[in-house]
């Protein structure tokens, strides 16, 4: 929030970058759906953010089938396609706060539990371990003062910087938008077509490299 306020006041966009370090969530692994529900009720809320939003930034395979870890585990380990699809469609950025996301996930699991005739389990080593991460944000030294600077600096931004300003920003900015949009709307000659185009990008199925290319294409088209 501090950064966004700063951007508004000075009309300068300070480009940041971030790195995460993964931590255990402090709970035993869940080997079936009932245990998973119990763990999700108990876990720190950052675990939900990690498994739904930070999948793109941590060192892992960007599985294009499902973008969140819970859906992927339901599909690959529990072999429950119905549950995987219901969890897979969740847009974590669509919730006002992460507790609402937790409620939604619990509701989906409870519904599924009521439908199942038996409770599938996985071997102990294949259980779902809830994780979390600490994010370290740091300055890149780049300052943007005009929309044209986005075109200039975007190609050299790291994937994690793209993540920070386009995705992670949605938990910092007042209207849950990206930092570019937040900044552009306070400029004197705000480029409305570009702002609108940014809002139309469906990032749900893009990895960070693809998202960066999409942003570059959008900027090239509307600036």
């Amino acid at each position: 929030m501090a950064k966004s306020t700063n951007a508004k006041k000075n009309q300068v966009f300070a480009v940041k970058d971030c790195a995460i370090i993964t931590q255990t969530g402090g709970l035993d692994s869940a080997i079936n759906l009932r245990e998973l529900k119990e763990r999700i009720i108990l876990c720190p809320i950052q675990c939900l953010y990690f498994h739904f939003c930070e999948t793109l930034i941590r060192p892992t395979f960007d599985n294009p089938e499902f973008r969140n870890d819970l859906a992927l585990w339901a599909s690959t380990h529990l072999r429950d396609g119905v549950l995987a699809e219901k969890l897979g469609i969740i847009n974590p950025y669509g919730f006002a706060d992460l507790e609402k996301l937790r409620e939604k996930v619990i509701e989906i699991i409870e519904d599924r539990l009521s439908e199942l005739q038996s409770l599938p389990s996985v071997p102990r080593g294949e259980g779902f371990i809830l994780m979390r991460a600490a994010t370290v944000v740091f300055d890149t030294g780049v300052k943007m003062t005009s929309p044209e600077d986005i075109r200039k600096y975007l190609p050299d931004m790291s994937n994690s910087s793209i993540y920070y300003h386009f995705l992670e920003a949605r938990r910092r900015t007042p209207d849950r938008t990206d930092d570019f949009t937040f900044w552009l709307q306070f400029l004197k000659n705000k480029p409305q077509p570009l702002i609108d185009a940014f809002s139309q990008i469906d990032f749900s199925f893009l990895n960070l490299s693809e998202l960066k290319q999409e942003l570059i294409k959008t900027v090239d088209k509307y600036l």
């Binding site: 991460a133 600490a134 994010t135 370290v136 944000v137 740091f138 300055d139 030294g141």
Partner: peptide
């Protein structure tokens, strides 16, 4: 001081 969100902006 480890928290969920650490600002390392003290270059």
């Amino acid at each position: 001081g480890l928290t969920n969100y650490v600002l390392a902006e003290c270059r």
